[in-house]
């Protein structure tokens, strides 16, 4: 296990990132901890908390996931995917909005759902699961607004300026949506163990997390056709995260949460994306080796 941690730290250093990781064997409770209790900025990983809250509201009968909502093209929260970039008005069910939110991290879909569910309900849902250090303090649109305000007149181009990076509120866990790696694996384990809602709702959530399209982070560490990977990423300048569950055909199920910060503010850093997968595999291998040797 020490060996796994040493190799995980070396992998983070090679990729030029500071990494926090927690890996949890969902069935035995065995775990691996590299800074797992450090506060981290969740960024779009918080869409997972919103998904859980949405299903909890549906289970309680306070909303109907098949209800259709209007998504007018103006006043959508910005983003590079999904409804956030689509040009015309749309009408989608709440659960299809949830699909866009998880599959492509659609910020517009997420804020439409958040408008419906409310921040307090998201926090109540994570509270109920005992996640006391997980907090949503603003919508995704509000988070992007702080980014824009802190970047100043230089816009996105200013995000490579060290002075700007040092003052971004969106990168300070005390002032933005936050959690810890350990609380995120606990949340995933609850979804996989049917404890975050009814079995039916948990299955629906697992389905969406498995439909996430991004191959470059967690999934890149498991280039095995017989291994199932489901997860949710989160990204901000210097921040690259993913939390997810890796399932082996022998029944082994592992929740892994990896949160990283790069020293380099560049947007395109493929090694920093890939190390999330590498570190996750080293962690899962560590847990599986421990199980094999009893």
């Amino acid at each position: 296990m020490t060996d796994a941690l040493t190799r995980i730290r070396a992998a983070f250093a090679d990729a030029g990132v500071t990494g926090r990781l927690h890996a949890l064997d969902i069935d035995t409770g065995a775990q691996l901890d590299e800074g797992a209790d450090q506060p981290v900025c969740t960024a779009s990983v918080h869409k997972l908390c919103l998904l859980v809250a949405l299903h909890r509201e549906a289970a309680a009968g306070r909303l109907d996931l098949t209800e259709r909502v209007d998504c007018p093209p103006d006043a959508r929260t910005k983003g590079p995917t999904g409804l956030a970039v689509m040009l015309d008005s749309a009408r989608l069910s709440l659960r299809d909005l949830a699909y866009l939110m998880i599959a492509v991290s659609d910020n517009a879909a997420a804020d439409l759902l958040l408008g419906r569910v409310g921040l307090d309900t998201v926090n109540a849902a994570t509270d109920r699961l005992g996640l006391t250090r997980t907090r949503a303090v603003h919508t995704f649109g509000e988070m992007l607004a702080t980014l824009k305000e802190d970047a100043g007149p230089g816009g996105a181009g200013a995000l490579t300026d060290p002075h700007v990076i040092a003052r971004l509120r969106a990168l300070d866990p005390a002032r933005t949506n936050r959690s810890t790696p350990r609380e995120m694996t606990r949340l995933l384990a609850a979804v996989w163990r049917d404890e975050a809602g009814t079995a039916e709702h948990c299955a629906a959530m697992r389905r969406l997390l498995a439909l996430q399209v991004w191959p470059h982070r967690l999934a890149s560490g498991f280039p095995f056709d017989d291994v199932h990977v489901a997860g949710k990423t989160g990204t901000l300048p210097t921040v690259r995260n993913e939390v997810g569950v890796v399932e082996y055909p022998d029944g082994g199920r592992y929740a892994v949460a990896v949160f990283t910060r790069t020293a380099n503010p560049a947007a395109a850093l493929p090694a920093a994306d890939a190390v999330i997968g590498t570190a996750a595999r080293l962690a899962v291998d560590g847990l599986r080796a421990r199980q094999a040797t009893g």
Binding site: P80, T81, L147, A151, G154, G155, A156, G157, T160, A267
Partner: peptide
């Protein structure tokens, strides 16, 4: 003094947008 950065083309996986 540091010059303004080169153009930044955010790709869809960036998840954020200004």
């Amino acid at each position: 003094p540091d010059v303004p950065a080169r153009p930044l083309h955010l790709r869809p996986a960036s998840e954020f947008w200004l």
